[in-house]
Simulated scan of single mutants.
Amino acid sequence: MYIIDSPSHDAYFNIAAEEYLLSRFPKEDLFLLYVNAPSIIVGKFQNTLAEINLQYVQEKNIKVVRRMSGGGTVYHDLGNLNFSFHTLLGEYDFMDFSAFTKPVLTLLNNLGVPAVLKGRNDLLVDDKKFSGNAKLARQGKMIQHGTILLHSEMEVLSQALTVNPLKFVDKATKSTRSRVTNLSEYLPEPLSTEAFKKLLTEEIIHNNPAAERYELTPEDITGIKKLAAEKYETWDWNFGFSPNYNFKKGIKVPAGFIEVHLDVEKGTIKQAKIFGDFFAENPIEDLETQLIGVKHESSQINKVLSAVDITQYFGKVEVEEILEAFL
C-alpha cells in the first residue's frame, strides 16, 4: 500500500487526484489523505443547483465540485479531513463500508470517542454524523472515500447547503440532511487537522506494516492539474452534468411579482415561462424565447437580460433584480 498525503488544499486538484491515481496506480492499494479549502462536493448523480445555496456559495467564493462517486453532498473546509482507499475490485464486498471505516473508528475509540458505523455509510457519535462515506468501481479498482468533521465551520456548512425546497422539482437523488457534529466536541483534548491526520496515518501503518509513503512527483502534479482544468473545474461537469429538472422561483420587486419556470436538460434551458403581475410593454414571450438554449448559469442568463431593455418587459427594474428570479 502507498500512503499519499496531498500537498494541495484545492478541491479541484484533490478530486481530480482521485481519478488520476486510478490510472497512475492500476494495481496498487492506495491510502490518500487531503484537506480542502471551503468547498462543496456533490455526488455524481445529483442536481448541483438543488443541493446548494447558490447565492451564498458565490458570495463566499466556495468552490463546487462534482466527484466520481454517488452519494450525497458534503461540505469541506480546513477543519475537515478526507480519506480515500483504492483497492482492486473484488477484494472486498462493494456494499460493505465497514472494512475501510474501521481504522477511523479504532483510532477514535482508542481516544475515548464512542464512534460507530450506523446505517449504510455514516459514522456517528451520539447519533450525530461526523463522517459520510461513498464508493465507486472503475477501471478494475474500487474507491471508498469519506470525510471526517473535526472542527469545521458549522454555520457555513448549514448556510452553504440550505436550498429553498420549492425551487426545484427533479428526479435526482437529494442529499439526506442529517444532524452533524464536529469531533472536537468529543475528543479528550484539542487536535488540529494535521495532528489527526498524523494519528490516522499511524493507524493505517500499524495495520499495514509494509505500507510506503509516496510523494506526488512533478509529473503527477502536472497530470492532476491538467485533468482538473479539463474536467473538474468546468461548468459542464459540475453543473451541466446534472440530471433534467424543473426550476421554479418567485420574487417580489418594485415592478411587481415575478415567477420564473424553467425546464432544464443537462444544464441548458429548454423551455421558459415567466408569470407575474408586472406590466410588460413588449411581449414577455419574446424574452422567454431568447432564454431557450442558454445555460442555467448566472453569467449566461445575465448576458441575455443585459442585451435587452429589461424595462420593456418588467417596467422600472434593474437586471440584477430580475436575475435573482432565475437562480
Rank of each mutant, 00 (worst) to 15 (best):
I322M: 00
E318C: 00
L108W: 04
L78M: 15
N14H: 08
P209K: 14
S131H: 02
N53D: 08
S8M: 07
E203H: 03
K303M: 11
F257Y: 10
V125H: 06
Q139S: 06
S39M: 13
D10W: 13
T201W: 04
A211M: 07
L124D: 03
V113Y: 04
P114K: 11
I4S: 07
L49E: 08
D96T: 10
I301S: 02
H76D: 06
Y232R: 12
G43I: 09
D263N: 10
F13L: 02
I148K: 09
D10P: 10
L49M: 14
G276Y: 01
K128L: 14
E259T: 02
Y56S: 10
V163S: 02
E194M: 10
K174D: 06
I204L: 05
F314C: 00
V319P: 04
A17R: 05
G132C: 09
V163W: 01
N133S: 15
E203V: 05
I224E: 02
F168S: 02
P283I: 00
S158C: 03
E155L: 15
A307I: 04
A272Y: 00
A307Q: 08
T268M: 09
L183P: 04
V163N: 05
P243H: 12
L287Q: 04
M95F: 05
L199C: 06
N36I: 15
K270S: 11
D309R: 10
E219W: 01
S69E: 04
P254L: 09
G293E: 03
N238S: 06
H76M: 11
T106D: 13
T234S: 05
A134E: 04
I221G: 03
I284V: 11
Q58H: 10
A211P: 03
Y2W: 15
I3M: 12
D126V: 06
V116Q: 14
I269M: 08
E324D: 13
Q58F: 09
I310S: 01
R179D: 06
T181P: 02
N80C: 12
